[in-house]
Design a protein around this nucleic acid. Structure first.
Lengths: 218, 218
DNA sequence: GTGTGTGAAAGTATTCACAGCC
DNA sequence: GGCTGTGAATACTTTCACACAC
């Protein structure tokens, strides 16, 4: 039987907290690599560029991981953060679109290292199907439905051209894949309750443009 | 002399509004392509997946672009949004790192189309220098300083390996480039007042992982 | 003394709801 | 009647400041 270490007020995790945890984890892994055993919220805050109270508050949604008067044990906090983020097991991931971008993502090291298990890649182009782009032979997009019937997939990364991205997302979600990371420049939507995140170059560039306009004398 | 059309209370633009404007612009361009002349905040909200009041409030920070009882004229609103976002002129952009990711970005069409003028690419690898990766011959990273002395650059997109990214960012910022779009998985910092934005695959995947953990029965 | 964990306060962002204009 | 523009209300986030544990 699981023991409850202490009565904690169960509060919902603010959505702004979640991406920050990933930043904390990265810094802690660097700190760990440098051989530091213990770190205070003040020093960690300095490393990630935030303030100490933010870190303590973020962590407090998940438990009490520190020692008063001392700080956080680095190894322990890394493990706790991994658990918080669901990185204590692996997630089966596919990439749809094996062009330059899809291939770049497939070859990215940190990927497998953090528990994302790239199990297959798909592409519509004859020229690419069968070639190895980082995860064994690329399969045809036509086989996507068949593949998803036979294999469990947690995350689909979509790096197709914009024109086909929504169709792909519909098919993948209909087949039961619960989450999508979309790089195509479309406002993706899913009827079924799937988690969709958007990575959008245009938006990033336009945001820079907005702040450039204000700071420059153009 | 500029005429002030009406006294508007000058309010600071919330930082959450800016990336949304880019989404509105994209949808409006699709709506325009379909030949629609006028659109209400309700229909636009449906298209981008938000609520009408959000759109009206966001636009209100910049002016009064609509007609009561009617809606917004699509052509007009597109132009106004472009002005708001600083897309009424072009921004000179370089890409540092001409690997798969850098090349994918360079070949992305929407790039030039929205006023981002890719003027040069840089890479450290002998195998790539001199080749065309989408913006004429790739230059050596060693020439970066020299290049920036002679040419004006508004935006540097960094797609180098993590190990060298911070050094590149330091050099580019020191040379006076006012904004950075960083794809390397590091928490980039700049002393000089530069605008830095981070695009981070790890963080996106970990955020999905967090919500997957909650929704799934793993 | 030092540094966490957390209610309370301050600051932002979103949504409501309605006056005013077409 | 329909829809915008916006102050006011609500919801969410961050920061403060201090009791408490080491």
């Amino acid at each position: 039987m699981m023991q409850t270490p202490r009565a904690r007020k169960e509060q919902p995790v603010p959505s702004a907290t979640v991406p920050r945890l990933s930043g904390y984890l990265r810094q802690l892994q660097e700190i760990q690599a440098r051989g530091t055993a213990t770190i205070s919220s003040r020093l960690l805050a300095e490393a990630v560029g935030t303030n100490p109270a933010q870190i303590r508050k973020d962590l407090s949604y998940f438990g009490e991981f520190g020692i008063r008067g001392v700080g956080y044990e680095v190894d322990r906090l890394i493990n706790e953060l991994k658990k918080c983020l669901g990185l204590d097991h692996t997630w089966d991931t596919i990439i749809v679109g094996a062009g330059k971008l899809g291939t770049a993502l497939a070859r990215y090291r940190g990927f497998q290292k953090q528990g994302f298990n790239l199990v297959a890649m798909f592409d519509a182009s004859r020229a690419v199907i069968g070639k190895n782009r980082g995860a064994g032979p690329v399969l045809s997009t036509q086989e996507l439905g068949k593949y998803l019937k036979r294999h469990h997939v947690d995350i689909a990364i979509v790096t197709t051209p914009a024109a086909v991205a929504q169709t792909i997302i519909d098919r993948v979600v209909a087949a039961g894949v619960p989450s999508i990371l979309n790089f195509a420049p479309i406002r993706a939507h899913a009827k079924k309750p799937a988690i969709v995140r958007q990575v959008d170059l245009s938006t990033e560039l336009m945001t820079l443009s907005f702040y450039l306009k204000k700071h420059s004398s153009h």
